[in-house]
């Protein structure tokens, strides 16, 4: 696909390896870059808000995006306690962007997954969650055909008006390997981001997350095939139905809690 006039920006964050907790390129952000390269090749712009840390492993992590063949990453410098959403929004408002790509959620920090939503709100753009691919872009009618990833391998094709923000799901194409040479030679183009301190989070109390209780799954499988099904299929609950009214919804939740013996 060559979309020469299209302006695509991917936002990248510092990832965190799940077992070692060391910084790395975030898996979803890397997929966003892969998708961006597919769309516009070398014209992809990449943006990171944060500081260029002295810590070698953090630098290496950020550089590993460059290792995917990017010539540069735009670095919006902001202090650690700043609100990245506002800093990025402030920058993007001055740009004419058609598509903004992010991951679904960050691998560390707040990891709320709110960034794309808040950005969309600030920029007044549409927001598509968890996309697996962008199939085509009609530059005349300013529309894109987007493939959204749904649970259990389902996909939904959507038509979205440009410009829009999309969060890229793990179901998107695997990111290309990051190569050491280009990673070391790529550049950070640093600009000072606006100053927006994160006022809310300063009042927050941070506690370690507790493991979510798991529902006991009692499997009465007799054959290996049954066990396989039980292990792989998501509990479908059987009695699922779509409830619309507020009262009905509340009732359904209450019924479930009673059924599970929680109240």
């Amino acid at each position: 696909m060559s979309n020469n006039n299209l302006s695509v920006i991917s936002l990248v964050s510092l990832g965190e390896h799940p077992t070692s907790r060391r910084p790395r390129r975030a898996e979803q952000d890397a997929r966003a870059i892969e998708l961006g390269i597919k769309l516009v090749g070398d014209n992809l712009q990449t943006l990171h808000a944060g500081e260029l840390s002295d810590d070698a492993s953090q630098q290496t992590a950020l550089r590993s995006y460059l290792g995917m063949g990017l010539a540069e990453i735009k670095l919006l410098e902001m202090p650690a306690d700043a609100d990245a959403v506002l800093v990025i929004a402030d920058y993007l408002k001055q740009q004419k962007t058609d598509i903004i790509l992010t991951g679904v959620r960050a691998e560390n920090g707040e990891s709320s997954g709110m960034l794309p939503y808040l950005l969309a709100e600030q920029l007044g753009m549409a927001m598509v969650t968890s996309i697996a691919d962008i199939l085509s872009i009609d530059e005349v009618n300013k529309q894109a055909e987007v493939l959204q990833a749904l649970p259990r391998g389902q996909r939904r094709k959507l038509k979205v008006d440009l410009p829009f923000i999309a969060s890229v799901d793990m179901a998107a194409a695997l990111p290309r390997q990051s190569a050491f040479g280009p990673a070391m030679r790529g550049q950070f183009e640093t600009t000072l981001g606006g100053t927006f301190t994160d006022e809310e989070s300063s009042d927050w109390q941070i506690v370690d997350a507790k493991k979510r209780p798991k529902r006991l799954k009692i499997i009465k499988a007799k054959t290996a095939a049954d066990r396989f099904k039980a292990a792989t299929a998501k509990a479908s609950g059987g009695g699922g139905k779509v409830v619309y009214g507020v009262e009905e919804s509340a009732q359904a939740i209450l019924d479930l809690l009673i059924e599970e013996g929680l109240i």
């Binding site: 070692s20 060391r22 290792g67 390997q177």
Partner: peptide
């Protein structure tokens, strides 16, 4: 191939990423 092109085949990319993140 690996350090300039990032073209280690098979599971190469994954293994190398693991090595750098987890030793």
């Amino acid at each position: 191939e690996t350090m300039e092109k990032g073209q280690t085949p098979g599971k190469g990319s994954e293994i190398l990423e693991n090595l750098s993140a987890t030793d």
